[in-house]
Design a protein around this nucleic acid. Structure first.
Lengths: 121, 121
DNA sequence: CTATCATATGAATATGTGTTCATGTGTTAT
DNA sequence: ATAACACATGAACACATATTCATATGATAG
C-alpha cells in the first residue's frame, strides 16, 4: 500500500486528461435529469410493454383483448399497464366493466419510430 | 372446473372485441423486431450508461477519465463500455496504453434529445 | 526482462424486475 | 342480495443485471 505523491486522482485512478474531464463535467446533465431519462427509456426496454405500446398506437384496447393478442395472462398485462400508466405513457377510460387503454401522447410514436430506425440499420 | 361452451377464449379470458384483436394482430411487429427494439432501449435505461453516452456526445474520452468524471470504479465503467460496444453504440481507438471511446452514430444524439424532450414535458 | 500503467474480464453478490398465483375491487345482470 | 365478469394488486418466485473484487491482458518505459 503506497501513497502516491501529487498526482490528481479519483477512485484510485489517475486522470489522464484533466481538461477534458473538467470541460465535460461542466456540461454534464443533472443527476435528476439523468434518472428521469433512465426511467423513461427503461419502460421501453421490455418486450411486453413494447408490444402493448405498439398495439395501442394502432387502436384503443381493453385489458382482456391485449391479453388475448399477446397470449399472456390478464394479470401480467395489468401489471405492465400499471407501469405504463405511472410513466404517463398511456391513459384509460372506463365503460361499464371494461377499461379501455390508449396512448397518452403522440410523442411516443416518434420514440418508437426512432428506435425502429436504429434497429433496422 | 367448468368447461365453457363455444366462447372464443385465450389464456382463459374472453376476447371482447375480436375484430380489434384481429386487426391489430395482422399489423403487429415481428417477435424478432420487438426483441431487438427492447434490447436497444434497455441500454438507454441505465443512469451510468446514459452518463457515458452523454459524455461521449460531448467529447471522445478514455476509460480512466470516464471513471473520474462519474466517480466510479474503472471496472464498472469498463463493464458498461462493453455493453455499449456490443450494442454498437460506441466505437474505440487505441493509442498506446490508452483506449479512447466515442459515439458510433449521430443517431444516438437524436434518441437522447427525444427522451429529454419527453422528460422535460 | 521487469515493472508499471490502462484497460478488460470472470466470478460473486446484491439488487431490481417480470410473471404467476391468489385474492380484492368495482360494475352489471338476474 | 347474489353471481358473474373485467380488471387491479400484493406476495412470492425466478431470472436478469449492475457493481465489486480479484486477476488477466496488452502496451510502454527503464
Amino acid at each position: 500500500m503506497k501513497v502516491d505523491k501529487d498526482k490528481i486522482q479519483t477512485c484510485g485512478y489517475t486522470v489522464i486528461h484533466q481538461d477534458v474531464v473538467n470541460g465535460v463535467s461542466k456540461r454534464m446533465l443533472e443527476e435528476e435529469t439523468i434518472m428521469s431519462l433512465a426511467e423513461f427509456f427503461k419502460v421501453f426496454g421490455d418486450p411486453t410493454r413494447l408490444k402493448i405500446l405498439y398495439a395501442l398506437s394502432i387502436s384503443e384496447m381493453c385489458v382482456c383483448d391485449l391479453a388475448a393478442l399477446l397470449g399472456m395472462s390478464q394479470s401480467a398485462i395489468s401489471h405492465q399497464l400499471k407501469v405504463l400508466r405511472q410513466s404517463r405513457l398511456i391513459k384509460y377510460r372506463r365503460d361499464g366493466k371494461v377499461v379501455y387503454y390508449s396512448l397518452d401522447d403522440d410523442h411516443i410514436r416518434q420514440v418508437f419510430a426512432q428506435g425502429l430506425a436504429h434497429v433496422n440499420e
